[in-house]
C-alpha cells in the first residue's frame, strides 16, 4: 500500500510539472507572436511573467526580453537581460551582437585598470557558462569517487594506481578550481546595470552625501556591498566607487 501511495504522489508531481511547463511554453509562443506583430509591450509582459512567475531562467527568454526592452527604447533593461542571457549562453552570437548594439547607445565608457592576468582569468571564466563548468566538475567528481572506490579495493593493481594518481586526481583538482572560481564569479561577484537615464554616484548611502560622479543608463558596474538602507555600494572597472540607490540599478546575477 505504501509503495502504491509513493507512486501515486510521484505521478501527480510529474503531471503537475508537465502541465505547468505546457502552460509556460504556450505563453512563450504567444509572447513570440506579439513580438512578431511588433507589439513589444505585450510581448515583454508575457516574457517577464515567465521569468518572474514561472521562475524560468533561460538564455532564450532573457534574450527575447532584452530585444523587447530595446525595441521599447529601454536600453538599461535591454542590456540587463542581454547580460543575464550571456551568463547562461556566453558564446551565443545573437546575444553578443544585440548586446553590442545596445551598448553602443550607452554614454559612459570606462577604461579598465585590471591586470592582464585578471583580464585573462575573467575572459576564460566568461567563455564557459556555469552550467558547462558544473557538468565538467560533476564528471570529474564522479570519476574521482568511482576511482577512489576502485583504488581502495585494488591497491595492489599498478594500472589502477597510475590512472588514479596521474589522471583522475589532477582532473578533479583542476575542475574543482575552475568550478570554484566560476562559482565565485557567478554567485558572489555581483554585477549590475544602471536602469535610469542618469544616476548621481554619491560618497555615502544617502542624498546628503557629495556626488562623486555621474553614470548613465545601461552602464555596467560591480556591486561591492548591499545594505538594507536602500543604497548599494558600487565600483567601476577603473577603480571609482560610490553609492547609488537600489531602485536605479538592475542586478545581473544571481539570476
Amino acid at each position: 500500500m505504501k509503495k502504491f501511495s509513493f507512486l501515486f504522489i510521484l505521478f501527480l508531481m510529474v503531471t503537475a510539472t508537465n502541465c505547468v511547463f505546457a502552460d509556460a511554453t504556450a505563453t512563450f509562443k504567444t509572447a513570440n507572436d506579439y513580438y512578431k506583430s511588433q507589439d513589444y509591450g505585450k510581448a515583454g509582459q508575457l516574457y517577464l511573467e515567465l521569468a518572474d512567475n514561472y521562475g524560468i531562467k533561460n538564455a532564450g527568454l532573457f534574450y527575447n526580453l532584452g530585444n523587447t526592452f530595446y525595441k521599447q527604447g529601454n536600453i538599461g533593461k535591454s542590456i540587463l537581460y542581454y547580460e543575464k542571457a550571456l551568463l547562461l549562453a556566453p558564446r551565443d552570437k545573437d546575444i553578443k551582437d544585440n548586446l553590442l548594439i545596445a551598448q553602443s547607445k550607452v554614454i559612459d565608457k570606462v577604461e579598465p585598470t585590471n591586470s592582464f592576468g585578471t583580464m585573462l582569468l575573467r575572459t576564460t571564466l566568461a567563455y564557459f557558462s556555469m552550467n558547462e563548468v558544473s557538468w565538467v566538475f560533476w564528471l570529474a567528481a564522479i570519476s574521482f569517487l568511482v576511482g577512489a572506490l576502485v583504488f581502495i579495493n585494488n591497491r595492489n593493481n599498478h594500472r589502477v594506481q597510475l590512472t588514479y594518481y596521474y589522471a583522475i586526481i589532477p582532473l578533479f583538482i583542476l575542475s574543482s578550481l575552475w568550478f570554484s572560481f566560476k562559482y565565485v564569479s557567478y554567485s558572489d561577484i555581483l554585477r549590475g546595470i544602471v536602469l535610469t537615464e542618469k544616476v548621481d554616484v554619491r560618497s555615502g548611502p544617502g542624498e546628503s552625501f557629495q556626488t562623486l560622479f555621474v553614470v548613465h543608463e545601461g552602464f555596467k558596474f560591480s556591486i561591492v556591498k548591499e545594505t538594507n538602507s536602500g543604497w548599494t555600494r558600487i565600483t567601476l572597472d577603473n577603480g571609482f566607487n560610490g553609492w547609488i540607490p537600489d531602485n536605479v540599478c538592475g542586478k545581473i546575477n544571481p539570476l
Binding site: L50, Y54, N67, S134, W138, L145
Partner: peptide
C-alpha cells in the same frame, strides 16, 4: 537592427546544472 528573438520551445526551469537536485544528490 537587433537579431531576431529565439523561438526555442525548451524552457529550463533552473539556470544551471549545479543548482539541480540531481547534481547535489549524485555527489
Amino acid at each position: 537592427d537587433l537579431n531576431y528573438i529565439k523561438e526555442t520551445s525548451r524552457l529550463e526551469p533552473v539556470a544551471s546544472f549545479n543548482q539541480s537536485l540531481f547534481f547535489k544528490l549524485s555527489l
